[in-house]
Simulated assay, not measured.
Amino acid sequence: MRRFAGIEDLSGLVRDALGSGCRVVGVDRLRGGSKKGVYRVHVDGTRMATVVVYVWADTENFWPAVDEVGTADPLAPASGLVPFLAAQRSLDSLGVRVPQLLLADGGRRRYRADVAVVEDVCGGPLEGLFDTDPGRAGSALGDLAGMLKAMHGRRSPRYGRVDLLEQDVAASCEALVLDRALRDLEEAAGRDDRIAAAADALGDRLRELAARVAPRAEYGLIHGELGPDHVLVDGDGHAVLIDIEGLMYFDVEWEHVFLRLRFGERYAALARPGLDPRRLDLFMLAMRLSLVAGPLRLLDGDFPDRPFMRTIAEHNTEEALALLP
């Protein structure tokens, strides 16, 4: 039985963040998170009516345990206070808007897990504004395009998650995307008969696409999982990035493949010239296989929104098979 946080768990933490006059009057656990708990905390006695608390507890993580190739793999699931704080510092240094950090505690003095208290960006996700307020959404999309330009323009001679690079731990696998895609393919084939029937052809196609990619010695700063659900819009209409723990230096084409998938026809506002088409081809197939294997793996556990995850896996199965020549 999973135990989630309530008023009695978070009151002391939020009071430390906002001051002794603060009183917690309500706690809502927000839907959608699969690696950490996200709570909206309602308060009295302070200028802020609400704050958000991130909780990195084992009971908040719905992903079944898997053997990873190593901690330096930037595409391994990213979660925790350390990568969050490293990403926060990196994005702040670029002027990229993220929720204001009010308190971080990795010593577990205030709660049984690592936690952070941040500003509650009350404008809602960009995703919901496309239909309800297209003018505001268009302005925020332009703001996001500027953020991406700043991020992708920040360069590094090494690739890897920013918290690992800060620790001087370099990613060691030059064929990282190919290796992970082949593992995703093997995992998906064990769960879906259609992928299993085409596994040899998909594996050959991945290797063929990877062989066409020329080496590169410089990488850009990317979010790694940037859909419109990971962009909030603040009261001034500015885009605010969330779920930033996976921030890394990597081929910017990886980001653009994900942006293209998640923003659809609106991707044109975020597109940029000069991307490597060979990387885009490899990354598109790798991303599709990841979006089959990942959701199916999540369904091995007790993730609550099961129809949604199954829909993602089904759609990306069809799209991956359509990429075969």
Score class of each variant (00 low, 15 high):
residue 1 M to V: 14
residue 1 M to P: 10
residue 5 A to K: 03
residue 7 I to T: 02
residue 8 E to T: 03
residue 8 E to I: 02
residue 12 G to S: 04
residue 17 A to F: 02
residue 17 A to M: 02
residue 17 A to K: 00
residue 18 L to G: 08
residue 20 S to A: 13
residue 20 S to V: 04
residue 21 G to N: 15
residue 22 C to A: 11
residue 23 R to E: 04
residue 28 D to F: 05
residue 31 R to W: 00
residue 35 K to P: 08
residue 36 K to I: 07
residue 38 V to H: 10
residue 43 V to P: 00
residue 46 T to E: 05
residue 51 V to M: 06
residue 54 Y to F: 01
residue 54 Y to N: 02
residue 54 Y to W: 02
residue 55 V to M: 01
residue 57 A to E: 03
residue 61 N to P: 09
residue 68 E to F: 08
residue 69 V to K: 02
residue 72 A to F: 03
residue 72 A to D: 13
residue 72 A to C: 14
residue 72 A to N: 06
residue 75 L to P: 01
residue 78 A to K: 08
residue 79 S to Y: 05
residue 80 G to F: 14
residue 82 V to T: 13
residue 87 A to L: 01
residue 91 L to F: 14
residue 96 V to D: 12
residue 97 R to L: 12
residue 98 V to L: 11
residue 100 Q to V: 15
residue 100 Q to Y: 01
residue 101 L to S: 08
residue 102 L to H: 04
residue 103 L to P: 04
residue 104 A to K: 04
residue 109 R to S: 06
residue 110 R to N: 00
residue 110 R to H: 05
residue 112 R to H: 07
residue 113 A to I: 15
residue 114 D to H: 10
residue 119 E to F: 12
residue 120 D to A: 14
residue 122 C to N: 07
residue 123 G to C: 12
residue 125 P to E: 15
residue 128 G to E: 10
residue 130 F to R: 09
residue 132 T to I: 14
residue 132 T to L: 08
residue 138 G to R: 06
residue 143 D to Y: 02
residue 149 K to Y: 03
residue 156 S to Y: 08
residue 160 G to L: 08
residue 160 G to S: 09
residue 163 D to F: 12
residue 166 E to F: 13
residue 168 D to M: 05
residue 170 A to F: 09
residue 173 C to H: 01
residue 174 E to S: 12
residue 178 L to T: 15
residue 178 L to S: 05
residue 180 R to Y: 04
residue 181 A to C: 11
residue 182 L to E: 11
residue 182 L to P: 11
residue 183 R to Y: 00
residue 183 R to Q: 01
residue 185 L to N: 08
residue 187 E to D: 04
residue 191 R to Y: 05
residue 192 D to R: 12
residue 193 D to C: 08
residue 194 R to Y: 08
residue 194 R to K: 13
residue 202 L to K: 06
residue 210 A to S: 14
residue 211 A to Q: 13
residue 212 R to L: 15
residue 215 P to S: 07
residue 218 E to T: 12
residue 219 Y to C: 09
residue 222 I to W: 00
residue 227 G to C: 11
residue 230 H to P: 02
residue 232 L to G: 01
residue 234 D to P: 00
residue 235 G to C: 00
residue 236 D to W: 12
residue 242 I to N: 01
residue 255 E to P: 00
residue 257 V to H: 03
residue 257 V to D: 07
residue 259 L to V: 12
residue 262 R to N: 08
residue 263 F to G: 05
residue 263 F to C: 06
residue 265 E to Y: 05
residue 266 R to W: 07
residue 266 R to N: 10
residue 267 Y to M: 11
residue 271 A to H: 10
residue 272 R to G: 11
residue 274 G to H: 14
residue 275 L to G: 07
residue 278 R to Q: 12
residue 281 D to A: 14
residue 281 D to Q: 10
residue 286 A to G: 07
residue 287 M to A: 14
residue 292 V to Q: 05
residue 292 V to H: 00
residue 298 L to A: 09
residue 299 L to R: 13
residue 300 D to V: 04
residue 300 D to N: 08
residue 304 P to Y: 10
residue 304 P to L: 14
residue 307 P to M: 02
residue 309 M to V: 11
residue 311 T to F: 07
residue 311 T to P: 01
residue 318 E to C: 07
residue 322 A to G: 07
residue 323 L to A: 13
residue 324 L to E: 06
